[in-house]
Amino acid sequence: MEKITTHTGIGVPLRQSNVDTDQIIPAVYLKRITRTGFEDALFAEWRKDGNFILNREPYTRASVLVAGPDFGTGSSREHAVWALKDFGFKAVLSSRFADIFRGNSGKQGLVAAQLLQDDIELIWKVLDNEPGAEVTVDLEARTAVCGSVTAPFQIDDYTRWRLLEGLDDIGLTLRHEEDITAFEGRRPAHKPTTLPALLQG
C-alpha cells in the first residue's frame, strides 16, 4: 500500500446523504474476477445521466470526494472501495461513514476523513463558487483545507498510523516476517506438504 501523508487534488461536492454501496457499485459488477478496472462501475447507474457531476469537467479528474452524511451504508462489498480508488479517489470526506465501509477503506488505503457537517457545508460552498478548486487532506495534521476553509477531521489512530506508514494488513504481518520464519523452523518434520505431488496409482 502507498504511504499517504498529505494529498491535494480536485474536490467534488456530492450533495447526497445515505449513499449506499449499491449506488457506489451495483451488484452486477461483483461477478468480475479482478480487483482493479472498476472505474467504469463507480456510480454506474448515476453516471448514465450525462449531467451527473462525475461526468462533467473538471470532476472527471477529481480525487477528493466531499460527500453527505452516512456514506457507504449497505452491503459490505469491498468492491465499493476498489471502485472509488480505481476512479482516482484518494480520500472521501463525510460527516458520517458506515462502519464496514470505513474499515474497508482503511484496509485498501483510501482515507475516510470524518468532518463536522458544518465544515462539509463550508467546503461545498467553496467548491461551488470555484469549480475545480483543490482540497488538501493532511493526515499528519488531521485537517482538510479548501480555499479559506481549514477544518479538522477525525480518523482513528490505528488506521491513521497504517496509512501514514503505507501498511495494509499483509504489510503489517510481514513486519513480523522473522517470527514467521522462526516458527517455520520449529515445525515438526512430519507435517505434510502439497509439493511434490504424491499420487495414488
Binding site: 500500500m1 474476477i33 479482478t34 480487483r35 482493479t36 495494509d168 499483509i170 504481518t173 513480523h176 517470527d179 514467521i180 516458527f183 517455520e184 515445525r187 507435517k191 505434510p192 502439497t194
Partner: peptide
C-alpha cells in the same frame, strides 16, 4: 497471529486474492 499448515484454494474466492498479490508485487509464501 497463527501459522497455517494447509491452504486449500478453488476458483470462486481466489481470483481477487491472486490479483492483490500481483498488484503488491508479493510472492506466494
Amino acid at each position: 497471529l497463527l501459522y497455517i499448515d494447509l491452504h486449500l484454494v478453488h476458483e470462486v474466492t481466489s481470483p481477487q486474492a491472486f490479483e492483490g498479490l500481483r498488484l503488491a508485487g508479493r510472492p506466494l509464501r
